[in-house]
Simulated scan of single mutants.
Amino acid sequence: MESWILLAMAPVFLGLIAVEAWYWKDRRPVYSLRDTLSNAALALMHQGADAIAWLLVIGLYYAVYQHRLFDLPGSAWTIAGLFVAQDFFYYWFHRAHHRIRWMWASHVTHHSSERLNLSTAFRQSLTYPISGMWLFWLPLAWLGFEPKNIIAVVAINLGFQFFVHTEAVGKLGWIERVFNTPSHHRVHHARNPKYIDRNYAGVLIIWDKLFGSFVEEDPAVPCEYGVVTPIRTHNPITLTFHEWIAMFRDAARPQQSLGSRFKQLFGPPERGHSETPREPRIEFRDPRPALNAGDTDR
């Protein structure tokens, strides 16, 4: 159901991408043809894997639902409660995918572009089911929310997040206090030391403010997008699997204890010692525009 909801919204997404690309055409090289095509390919791969994953795990959701704590009627208040609860669990899903390398191996794909535009929202990995994305929504079924409604709300949450992947929208006044906005999400995609691993919100920014991960966009510190160690490719296969390969290579290095191997897989991403994982935070700044190598269509 999630894939079908997002596919139904595709005409809106594609139309807004076209408008945004036109807006930036004579201003700044925010869009690149190869980068955008790469994003589209990754989206198609992700949607296929996501649909298969839901078919495989939906039975588990209904099994958990049979042992639910509460019988929650299908009302507007129930759906509203589900929306808030799912957004809460999304925050922890997102935070875990930045702080546990096994999960970062999937999520790094989304952060690998050195551009930020609406098409970046499509830049997803087909390996999310392997990294355990579906686990984070299981408590909702145990609480008493029907699985079909959980899937629908997950899709709505992800659909909302499409709109925060843009540089074309500035600050939004009081909305910034409660909701995730383009300004907040620009911080999340930035690799500046001040901004790394901040603003994990899906829809409500209040979780970041409650749990100490919120940072406001600072006009004095322009966002530099991408990962600290750039991935210089537009190949969707490489973008999908490069960190998995690096992670297993690090874990397989000889003369390591079992504990060290475990930490390479499930510790913070910066534990990696190969050339592809994120490096420790550094203060160096490259003054050149943050463009992917090989981008010539400007």
Results as ranks from 00 to 15, higher is better:
residue 2 E to H: 10
residue 3 S to Q: 09
residue 8 A to Q: 02
residue 8 A to I: 08
residue 12 V to L: 15
residue 12 V to M: 10
residue 12 V to P: 00
residue 16 L to A: 13
residue 17 I to F: 06
residue 17 I to P: 03
residue 20 E to A: 08
residue 21 A to S: 13
residue 30 V to W: 00
residue 30 V to R: 09
residue 33 L to A: 14
residue 35 D to K: 00
residue 36 T to E: 06
residue 38 S to I: 02
residue 39 N to I: 10
residue 45 M to T: 14
residue 46 H to F: 06
residue 46 H to Y: 08
residue 54 W to P: 04
residue 55 L to W: 11
residue 58 I to K: 03
residue 60 L to C: 08
residue 62 Y to K: 04
residue 63 A to N: 05
residue 65 Y to I: 03
residue 65 Y to T: 00
residue 69 L to W: 01
residue 71 D to R: 01
residue 73 P to M: 05
residue 74 G to R: 02
residue 76 A to C: 05
residue 86 Q to R: 03
residue 87 D to S: 06
residue 89 F to K: 01
residue 92 W to K: 10
residue 95 R to F: 04
residue 102 W to F: 15
residue 105 A to F: 01
residue 106 S to V: 01
residue 108 V to R: 06
residue 109 T to D: 00
residue 113 S to G: 11
residue 119 S to P: 12
residue 120 T to N: 14
residue 123 R to I: 12
residue 129 P to G: 10
residue 130 I to C: 05
residue 132 G to D: 08
residue 135 L to K: 02
residue 136 F to D: 07
residue 139 P to N: 10
residue 149 N to L: 12
residue 152 A to F: 12
residue 158 L to K: 03
residue 163 F to S: 10
residue 165 H to A: 08
residue 168 A to W: 04
residue 168 A to S: 14
residue 169 V to G: 12
residue 171 K to T: 07
residue 172 L to D: 13
residue 174 W to A: 15
residue 174 W to G: 09
residue 176 E to M: 05
residue 176 E to P: 09
residue 179 F to G: 08
residue 180 N to L: 10
residue 180 N to Q: 09
residue 183 S to G: 13
residue 186 R to E: 14
residue 189 H to N: 12
residue 191 R to F: 04
residue 191 R to W: 04
residue 194 K to L: 15
residue 194 K to V: 15
residue 204 L to H: 02
residue 205 I to Y: 01
residue 209 K to Y: 01
residue 212 G to H: 02
residue 216 E to Q: 11
residue 221 V to C: 11
residue 222 P to N: 08
residue 222 P to E: 04
residue 225 Y to V: 01
residue 225 Y to G: 06
residue 226 G to F: 00
residue 226 G to E: 00
residue 227 V to Y: 01
residue 229 T to Y: 00
residue 231 I to P: 01
residue 242 H to W: 07
residue 248 F to G: 11
residue 252 A to P: 13
residue 253 R to N: 05
residue 255 Q to K: 11
residue 255 Q to E: 11
residue 257 S to D: 09
residue 258 L to M: 14
residue 259 G to H: 03
residue 259 G to Q: 08
residue 263 K to S: 14
residue 263 K to N: 14
residue 264 Q to C: 12
residue 265 L to G: 12
residue 266 F to P: 15
residue 267 G to Q: 05
residue 269 P to E: 07
residue 272 G to R: 04
residue 273 H to T: 14
residue 276 T to R: 11
residue 276 T to S: 11
residue 278 R to E: 15
residue 280 P to Y: 02
residue 280 P to G: 09
residue 282 I to H: 13
residue 290 A to L: 06
residue 291 L to Y: 01
residue 291 L to M: 12
residue 293 A to C: 07
residue 293 A to H: 00
residue 295 D to N: 09
residue 295 D to H: 00
